[in-house]
């Protein structure tokens, strides 16, 4: 299977400080990949290397089987949405996108299409300076997907957004995946990662400390391996998840006492707190 992105032993040093310590990652074509990690873990540094904004100290990056130039900008099959990527404040939403239709060499009508997709068509004549944070994020996403890139980099796409706007962005991300795009996103939001990503990796102090499908990762850290049963009447019972508990579970079920039943695998957040010794801030 061809990989959309392949990183081999990526090292990044700033002076004496080693921010990335030999990153090896393979991202399958057409998947949503989530890079998770606390602030300062090196997520943005890695995304900057992948998008050509920063030249890595050592290592190799391949896109769609081809070597990426070290620090070379402007890869044609790449779309990017980064919080610090600016918009032209005095221009309208439409004019902001129109400029890029011409730069990408796509028809001008793509600007209107993209505005419709992100729900900003009604505000197409609004200057960017009058948009809310959520609307700006949607406009950034519209600009990133307008030329239908094969690889889409999203840096904290729903950071600081209300749940409705975040859900709209998630929907668009899924639509892009359905189109066949590979999506590389960084996030603090474990729920977002669990919901969207087919694979996640945890970056901690410049190293990948865990990698896999979100459910797989959670199951791997299910040390307790217990069942939590909540009975009608409010009582909560904790049982070992093995054959010794089978009779008890059967009994509760036969007596129709079970209100809810859960296994105790941890959430992604709990796994990452266990691995890093700290939460996501």
């Amino acid at each position: 299977m061809e990989y959309a992105v392949e990183m081999r032993n990526i090292v990044q040093k700033f002076g004496e400080k080693e921010v990335l310590k030999g990153i090896d990652l393979k991202i399958h074509e057409g998947e949503i990949f989530g890079l998770l990690g606390p602030s300062g873990a090196g997520k943005t540094t890695l995304i900057k290397i992948l998008t050509g904004q920063l030249k890595q100290t050592a290592g190799e990056v391949q896109f769609l089987g081809k070597n990426a130039g070290n620090g070379k900008k402007g890869l044609p099959d790449m779309g990017m949405m980064m919080d610090n990527f600016g918009l032209y404040e005095r221009l309208t939403c439409y004019d902001n996108l129109k400029l890029f239709t011409r730069i990408y060499g796509v028809p001008g009508k793509k600007a209107d299409e993209a505005l419709r997709r992100v729900g900003l068509y009604g505000d197409r004549k609004q200057p960017v300076m009058k948009l809310s944070k959520g609307m700006r994020s949607r406009l950034l996403l519209a600009r990133a997907v307008m030329n239908e890139p094969r690889i889409l980099f999203l840096d904290e796409p729903s950071s600081g957004l209300d749940p409705v706007t975040a859900a709209e962005i998630h929907k668009l991300v899924c639509e892009e995946r359905s189109r066949g795009a590979t999506i590389f996103l960084t996030t603090h939001n474990m729920e977002e990662a669990h919901k969207l990503c087919s694979h996640v990796a945890l970056l901690h102090e410049g190293m990948i400390v865990e990698y896999g499908q979100p459910e797989q990762v959670c199951r791997r850290y299910n040390h307790q391996n217990k069942l939590l049963i909540r009975l009608y009447g409010g009582e909560q019972v904790e049982l070992s998840n093995n054959r010794t508990s089978a009779d008890k579970v059967k009994g509760y079920l036969e007596q129709e006492m079970v209100e809810t039943i859960h296994s105790t695998e941890p959430s992604l957040e709990t796994v990452f707190m266990e691995l890093t010794g700290r939460g996501f801030e």
Binding site: G52, Q53, K73, G74, P76, F85, I103, Y104, R143
Partner: peptide, 9 residues
Amino acid sequence: TLRVLMMSG
């Protein structure tokens, strides 16, 4: 915005 332009080719 200049960075975005440069990144866009």
